[in-house]
């Protein structure tokens, strides 16, 4: 082995030995690489961005840069990574619960706005897949921050029974150019020329095939049936969840004059069931919790309707993916017990 090869092998192995990787090799965070990343952020190295639950490690610009370098980020990704870290540490995201739970959520980064262009953040074909450095490394940097600064070590503090592959990396762009509607960020009060990240504590995407649908009345019942089984088929009062519509599916809805609010309302109304169908032991052991059942004299005969989602606004719609293919995806949030909500941050660059 040449000295260069020896150094390289040592770097990779010593970082594994420190327990600071996600299982894949990381880029060794040398001082020069980290300084370059800090410089690209336009902020001071020592500036505190957030405290990362559950350990509340200090996410300074430099600590975030170290993890971003390790994840393979280019320096110019830093503003997006910093915004994403700031968002996951927002109280409303409940990273404490997300990182400790036996459930499977992982922070999903959804990028809106013009920064998708220069950073080449994929919002098109294969949007959840491999092959794009920005998506791959921005999502990975957020994960490394959660583990290295937040203490979410798998099997130690992070007790997820199954987890999912999004715990390596989970980052998409919205395909705004292929959408008939305003973007997710614009809907939430940002200007189209602003770049943002939205963070969702997200389960794995569930694909919905709807190839023969030509109208909203064809497509929406199909989507709703897949949304009905989020968590389990009798789960109710669910919170923020992402519906990722492919451009072809979005076009069906947009061309028929449906606004995002119409779609949300339709899905919310469709997804509700009478109490009698939600009693534990009827069609499965899961069901309404005791404190809800206690509100009814005879739950087994009760026809009052209980919705899957707390409100239509919990159904978050984005358009993403390739322009060919009539497939959408449901990305369930993690909303247990007043848990995690979708959190936005502007990307400052």
């Amino acid at each position: 082995m040449s000295p260069v090869e020896r150094d390289l092998a040592h770097a990779i192995e010593s970082l594994y030995a420190r327990g600071v990787t996600d299982g894949l090799p990381v880029v060794p965070p040398t001082r020069a690489l980290v300084e370059r990343a800090v410089a690209a952020s336009g902020r001071e190295a020592g500036e505190l961005v957030a405290l990362v639950p559950p350990n509340y490690g200090r996410a300074t610009v430099e600590k975030i840069a170290i993890n971003a370098v390790m994840a393979g980020c280019r320096p110019e990704y830093l503003p997006v990574v910093i915004a994403a870290v700031d968002a996951v540490c927002d109280e409303a995201f409940d990273l404490h619960g997300v990182s400790a739970t036996t459930n499977a959520p992982s922070p999903l980064v959804i990028v809106n706005g013009p920064i998708r262009g220069p950073l080449e953040i994929n919002s098109g074909a294969g949007v959840f897949g491999s092959g794009w450095r920005a998506n791959a490394t921005i999502g990975r940097a957020v994960r490394l921050v959660c583990v290295n600064l937040g203490g979410a070590r798998p099997g130690v503090v992070s007790m997820s029974t199954l987890a999912h592959p999004g715990r390596y990396t989970y980052c998409i762009g919205e395909h705004e150019e292929a959408s008939p509607w305003e973007s997710l960020a614009v809907e939430h009060g940002f200007a189209p020329e602003q770049s943002t990240v939205a963070l969702l504590a997200a389960d794995a995407p569930l694909g919905v095939y709807a190839q023969r649908s030509r109208t909203p009345e064809d497509l929406l019942p199909t989507l709703a049936a897949s949304m009905a089984v989020i968590s389990h088929h009798k789960m109710t009062h669910w919170g923020d969840t992402l519906v990722v519509l492919s451009p072809e599916h979005a076009k069906i809805l947009g061309a028929a004059g449906w606004k995002k609010a119409d779609v949300r309302r339709w899905l919310h109304e469709r997804l509700q069931w009478p109490v009698c169908e939600l009693v534990p032991g009827h069609n499965g052991g899961e069901g309404l919790p005791e404190h809800v059942l206690a509100k009814f004299a005879h739950p087994a005969a009760e026809r009052a309707m209980i919705p899957k989602f707390r409100s239509p606004e919990n159904i978050k719609l984005v358009v993403a993916g390739g322009t060919a293919g009539r497939f959408s995806a449901i990305v369930p949030g993690w909303t247990f017990s007043k848990g995690s909500n979708l959190v936005f941050r502007r990307v400052l660059s």
Partner: peptide
């Protein structure tokens, strides 16, 4: 019992 290790790790981190 399954959370013994997590509890210990969390306490030690603090």
């Amino acid at each position: 019992a399954e959370f013994t290790r997590a509890a210990r790790a969390q306490a030690e981190a603090l």
